[in-house]
């Protein structure tokens, strides 16, 4: 479970100098599913740390304090409904970077089977934004 914990210090543990929180909308449409996969991919690529958007919506104190403790907050919405960024707006937490999957060239559908090529292309575009 240690890989799930992010330390804000400068010691020799897994921590980084800048804490980047990555929050996907994790919606049910294809682009929501892709937002979740992008957050995982960006975390694995070392671009930041996937954190829990639902926890912000639920106003879980520890989740709110964790978001406030991030140096940068990156929100990935699937579509222009911008649910995840609105969750942050409602919580009064500023978003530093806002990515919308449909703006990466993915059409919103109800298809739950996401092609690997779409995921990899979207991830590549996202990585360039960091």
């Amino acid at each position: 479970m240690t890989e799930n914990m992010k330390c804000g210090c400068e010691c020799e543990c897994e921590c980084e100098s800048e804490i980047v929180g990555i929050y996907p909308c994790s919606g049910s449409a294809n682009v929501g599913i892709i937002s979740n996969q992008l957050a995982i991919g960006l975390t694995k690529a070392g671009k930041g740390k996937m954190l829990c958007t639902a926890g912000i919506g639920a106003k879980i104190p520890g989740q709110l304090r964790s978001a406030e403790g991030c140096d940068r907050v990156v929100v990935i919405d699937g579509c222009p409904m911008n649910c995840a960024s609105k969750i942050f707006e409602n919580a009064g937490i500023a978003v530093d970077e806002h990515i919308v999957v449909t703006e990466l060239g993915v059409k919103k559908t109800r298809d739950m089977d996401i092609e690997d090529s779409i995921l990899s292309e979207s991830l590549e575009k996202c990585v360039k934004l960091f």
Partner: peptide, 17 residues
């Protein structure tokens, strides 16, 4: 619910993370 450390909890309430 603390995902980044250090964190400080006073009488069960998370004050900072």
């Amino acid at each position: 619910g603390v995902m980044i450390t250090p964190g400080l909890v006073i009488d069960g309430e998370v004050m900072i993370a």
